[in-house]
Design a protein around this nucleic acid. Structure first.
Length: 481
DNA sequence: ATTATTTTGTC
DNA sequence: ACAAAATAA
């Protein structure tokens, strides 16, 4: 095909940048004036710390790709779906189309980055031009130098991030793309079987989420139009819709941190600066997680602080199962785990509570919890998930001290004071008065009876006693130190 | 991004 | 007698 006088096209790789706005690779391709072939390339090789996309993200991916394909079609360049090893797929595409240029937005998870580096090296030997661009995080991880003795702690990192040049402004959506009209087979999305196959656990997802770039931009504007004002006070309240819920959109690159950074410095928000700053700090934690992952490629499988390597995990299968199914007997923990299962997402405050419970009350290895979140979260992110779990375990960088053990009763009463969150996800406790909602086992028999609760039958008794579990965890951490 | 306990302050 | 503040873990 390459010698038939047909203009050589440029291939734009999509992986987790499922958007048209602020997409530098797509803009660069469009500006070459060549025909553009957008390719979503799914390389699911499993090696080292690379692992397949989790179930919840597969659901999201299916819907997001549907939206992306429609948007690209409207611009004149239909999306091609391909699956396989990146080098093989690109090799075939070049043979089939005569493409002499491949562009992409960089990835920062070590396995992905490694694949992309190898691709760049290989194509440079073959006189195929390559270009890669930033997009997923605000600053290249190597641009922020590590602090003395290794790496930054969060506050130092945040300061260093502020000392960096202002992140660039976001780019507009290209007005039109020159398509490639010489035939090129695409996989069929349905053949990828991304949606649940046997039992449909995703019924609760669609009422909560709108995967895709449009859904992302809508979430952002809803957040900026109101919630951001109360973000600093309400962000820890799972019973209030106070957070942006942008995490799954960010994880799939349907929106960039550049777009969010830019939107939160809008002068129209002048009266809400505190809210904007607090929200940006959360972007900061995301950046910090990528900084850690870049410097510690084994962040999800090895203790950052190796003093935890000898920790005597108990890993009881029955306790793990109770945790996964939201049947621990602690209402705030169970509500969180059920929200996760029902909606593919969990409020950040509750993530900390359930993680602390798994690690410290049940003495189950944080890596097991990390794996469950990987499979069940629509926003599962290789950096944030691993860094978050290590933070709670106390084994991470700038982590919570090991003796910080969340009291699931107090946390529930403090952050879900009226029980709206627990009642939504643990409906069998609905009729229990607020006073006992986070500690049903302390309610008098008559109260339980009136609320139609039969402890141990309709709702479990606590699988571990808080005071005893706390003491046991402190002793275990003490011994292994 | 804490909790439990002790100490101090106030009536 | 109780709450706020300090402190150890």
């Amino acid at each position: 095909m390459s010698d038939t006088g047909i203009e050589k096209p440029v291939i734009v790789l999509f992986r987790h940048d499922l958007r048209l706005g602020d997409n530098r690779a797509l803009c660069a391709a469009s500006q070459t004036g060549k025909p553009v072939i957008p390719v979503f390339l799914r390389d699911e090789r499993v090696s080292g710390d690379n692992r397949p996309t989790g179930g919840a993200r597969r659901w999201w991916l299916h819907h997001s790709l549907t939206g992306l394909a429609a948007s690209l079609q409207a611009l004149g360049a239909p999306l091609i779906l391909k699956r396989g090893r990146t080098d093989d797929v690109i090799d075939t595409l070049i043979k089939d189309t005569g493409a002499d240029m491949v562009v992409w937005n960089r990835r920062y998870d070590p396995p992905g980055a490694e694949i992309d580096d190898a691709l760049q090296a290989e194509l440079s030997h073959r006189a195929v031009a390559t270009q890669s661009f930033e997009g997923q995080i605000l600053h290249e991880p190597y641009a922020l130098k590590s602090g003395p003795g290794g790496h930054y702690h969060y506050t130092a990192f945040w300061r260093a991030l502020h000392d960096m040049p202002e992140p660039r402004d976001p780019l507009p959506v290209p007005l039109a793309l020159k398509g490639w009209h010489h035939g090129l087979a695409s996989d069929k999305l349905d053949d990828w079987c991304l949606l649940p196959q046997h039992t449909d656990w995703s019924q609760g997802f669609s009422g909560v989420w709108s995967p895709g770039e449009n859904g992302a931009l809508e979430r952002l504007s809803i957040f900026l139009d109101g919630r951001i004002d109360n973000y600093p006070e309400d962000r820890d309240r799972p019973d209030i819709e106070a957070t942006s819920r942008l995490s799954p959109h960010l994880a799939h690159g349907e929106i960039t941190p550049f777009q969010i950074w830019h939107a939160t410095k809008n002068p129209a928000l002048d009266g809400q600066r505190a809210g904007a700053e607090k929200f940006r700090q959360e972007l900061g934690w995301r950046e910090f997680s990528y900084h850690l992952l870049f410097n510690n490629p084994r962040l999800r499988s090895e203790n950052y602080n190796t003093a935890f390597d000898g920790f005597p995990w108990e890993n009881r299968p029955d306790h793990l199962s109770a945790w996964k199914h939201g049947k621990t007997g602690y209402p705030i923990v169970d509500a969180g785990m059920r929200q996760l299962w029902r909606t593919g997402w969990m409020h950040n405050r509750v993530r900390m509570i359930v993680a602390s419970f798994l690690i410290k009350h049940l003495l189950i290895d944080w890596r097991i919890g990390e794996g469950w979140f990987w499979d069940t979260l629509v926003d599962a992110d290789p950096a944030s998930n691993a860094a978050g779990w290590q933070w709670v375990a106390g084994s991470g960088a700038d982590a919570a001290p090991y003796f910080r053990i969340f009291n699931p009763i107090l946390q529930g009463e403090k952050f879900d004071p009226k029980g709206g969150y627990v009642r939504e996800f643990v409906p069998e406790l609905t009729a229990l008065p607020d006073k006992y909602l986070h500690r049903p086992w302390t309610a008098p028999e008559v109260t339980l009876k009136k609320a139609r609760i039969d402890l141990g039958k309709t709702y479990p008794r606590p699988i571990v006693d808080h005071q005893r579990a706390r003491k046991r965890a402190l002793e275990a951490f003490d011994k292994s130190r």
